[in-house]
């Protein structure tokens, strides 16, 4: 079980020749620790590297300097490599992408079940119940390609929840949602955090998920 994620002087490789040109903030070129059980908001304006931060954390990109360390609480860091990268995505870090990364030809239930099949975390009945809770009862078996951006955002959120994890990273989760749905999403996230004691990291460029954050960091 991963207890903390440390960003140790991480910066974009792009600026390694001239570090003074690179961003310096509470996250970049700094040491910041995300702990299990706590919640964090990463606040950023456009161009501050929010997408890069998410990609580095998920292991989708490696073009950074410094270290991202996943600690298990006994002083051991999770090593790199292909199998640990898979482990990170399957059981350590759940990710809700800003661009959702849903499959337009599959229904909302199938999109979630496709992710759920990797670990068999939950049942289709529970998946349907979560989607219904977010107001998608008429869109359960409709291809995601025919759904609005906001509806897709809710499917992507449910999909992120359908796996075991120690941390969840939500990249602008309510950019296209009304307050009512944002509140339901907040409730579902809180329930999960209370149940499993997971860490929550949310990003925002202004429109914040209404959550009780332990720390707000500026990129």
């Amino acid at each position: 079980m991963i207890q903390s994620i440390v960003f140790d002087n991480v910066n974009l490789k792009l600026f390694t020749d001239n570090p003074q040109d690179g961003p310096v903030s509470q996250v970049w070129n700094n040491v910041v620790t995300f702990e299990r059980g706590k919640s964090y908001l990463i606040e950023a304006t456009s161009g501050r590297g929010k997408s890069s931060f998410c990609s580095f954390l998920c292991g989708l990109r490696n073009d950074y300097v410094g270290n991202i360390i996943l600690n298990d609480g006994n002083g051991n860091a999770l090593p790199g490599g292909y199998s640990n990268m898979l482990l990170r995505r399957q059981k350590i870090l759940a990710m809700m992408f800003q661009e959702h990364r849903l499959f337009p030809e599959l229904s909302s239930v199938d999109n979630v079940m496709l992710k759920n099949q990797i670990t068999g975390y939950t049942t289709e009945k529970e998946v349907r119940a979560m989607l219904v809770r977010l107001g998608l009862e008429d869109h359960l078996d409709r291809p995601c390609g025919r759904m609005s951006f906001g509806q897709q955002q809710r499917v992507a959120f449910v999909r992120a929840l359908c796996q075991p994890f120690d941390f969840i990273l939500l990249d602008e989760p309510i950019s296209h949602l009304d307050e009512g749905n944002a509140a339901i999403m907040t409730d579902m996230l809180r329930e999960r955090q209370e149940k499993d004691g997971v860490g929550v990291i949310v990003t925002s460029i202004g429109y914040r998920l209404p959550y009780e954050y332990d720390e707000i960091l500026y990129l």
């Binding site: 898979l86 399957q90 990364r101 990797i118």
Partner: peptide, 12 residues
């Protein structure tokens, strides 16, 4: 694109 997305979701 689908393959990359599946991989980013955790599929080997």
């Amino acid at each position: 694109e689908k393959i990359v997305n599946l991989f980013s979701m955790g599929y080997s």
